[in-house]
């Protein structure tokens, strides 16, 4: 058990049909020198192919890596494996579950909603650009594939190099028709902007082999000393277009200016959690937005967020501010 009040661990589920590239993506995540401790739960070790030099211990159903990451096999029950993991003395910064090829990743992500030690970070669904349409039309698994796509907060259109640009555009429209205005990240060999997908600190060097093809993504930061309007911010977030992959930050709302809210957004799903009093921290709302190069320009983003931050002078705000200075 973590000490009460410990920050919940972000919980990500990676779904997608067999062969779409989930494992490749996980391998990239496990071996990237991101300075964070990931616990990755996979269906079986047979498919993961972790660089042997990184393995420090291989015991039964877990593989410990030199970078502090851990790879566990799910065994007979995801529930028991996950609970086991949460009981371990070592803390992880992020827990990732690889859903089976036919599982609905949304249902697995539900665990993040009922386990206080986890916070649902997002459902990433990987699809094979060359084959997803055929799979979706398959007599036996078509509905399964469509359910997976519909459950995504963020889609990875993998094996993008196997289709022409025009086809990719059609595919994206088709995917959005199923999943709604969900962020779609194009990738080859599951080479995705890991930092954007998993909310790593910007600038982290994520490529052990350091090829020159670091997938591009942009970061933009919004900071304001003015308390934000809650409805205003929610409206801004709801209107963000799909190339915005993530947003994270601390927010001071005009309706509760003495308290700090944590904003987390993955794909199109945002959540705001009350984190308690500001304490002695600077009374500044700060939100980091990460997206593909197609996301709105810095100026456009600034204009959007400014609408939520019109200066509000009201007695509650004033007294909360004064309280701290006494």
């Amino acid at each position: 058990m973590p000490e009460p009040g410990a920050t919940p661990i972000p919980f990500t589920v990676i779904g997608g049909f067999l062969g779409a590239g989930k494992t490749t993506l996980l391998n990239r995540l496990l071996v990237a020198p991101h300075g964070r401790r990931f616990a990755v739960l996979v269906n079986d070790f047979g498919s993961v192919d972790i660089d042997g030099r990184l393995i420090v211990a291989h015991g039964g159903d877990t593989i410990a890596l030199a970078n502090g990451c851990l790879c566990c096999s799910i065994g007979d029950s995801l529930a028991t494996t996950l609970l086991d993991l949460l009981e371990r003395p070592d803390r992880f910064d992020h827990v990732v579950v690889e859903a089976s090829g036919v599982a609905d990743p949304g249902r697995i992500a539900d665990i993040g909603g009922i386990e206080p030690r986890l916070s649902r970070d997002g459902v990433i669904v990987v699809v094979d650009a060359a084959d997803v349409r055929a799979r979706a039309a398959d007599r036996y698994v078509g509905d399964t594939v469509l359910r997976q796509i519909a459950a995504a907060d963020l889609l990875v259109l993998n094996k993008r190099d196997l289709v022409e640009d025009a086809e990719a555009t059609t595919l994206k429209t088709w995917l959005e028709g199923i999943a709604g205005a969900v962020a779609v990240v194009e990738a080859r060999h599951a080479d995705v902007p890991l930092a954007a997908l998993f909310g790593l600190p910007p600038g982290a060097d994520l490529h052990p082999a350091a090829p020159a093809c670091e997938p591009a993504f942009r970061t933009w930061t919004f900071a304001t000393p003015h308390p934000l309007s809650r409805e205003g911010l929610v409206a801004v977030l709801d209107a963000l277009p799909s190339p915005v992959l993530r947003a994270k930050g601390f927010v001071r709302f005009a309706d509760s200016p003495g308290r700090r809210a944590l904003l987390q957004r993955v794909g199109r799903r945002s959540r705001l959690d009350d984190e308690g009093a500001w304490g002695l921290g600077r009374l500044v709302s700060e939100i980091v937005v990460i997206g593909t190069p197609d996301m709105p320009s810095d100026a456009d983003l600034a204009a959007r967020f400014e609408t939520a931050a019109r200066p509000v002078v009201d007695a509650a705000v004033l007294s909360a501010t004064l309280d701290r200075t006494r």
């Binding site: 995801l78 529930a79 028991t80 609970l83 949304g106 539900d110 665990i111 009922i114 386990e115």
Partner: peptide
């Protein structure tokens, strides 16, 4: 959360289904 059954007023009824049920049982 999908597996948390709620009544007409939006309160959880006490019933959990499928994945959430399984997780909670083990927990």
């Amino acid at each position: 959360v999908h597996g948390v059954v709620k009544d007409a007023t939006g309160e959880p009824t006490g019933e959990l289904q499928e994945m959430t049920a399984k997780f909670m049982a083990y927990k």
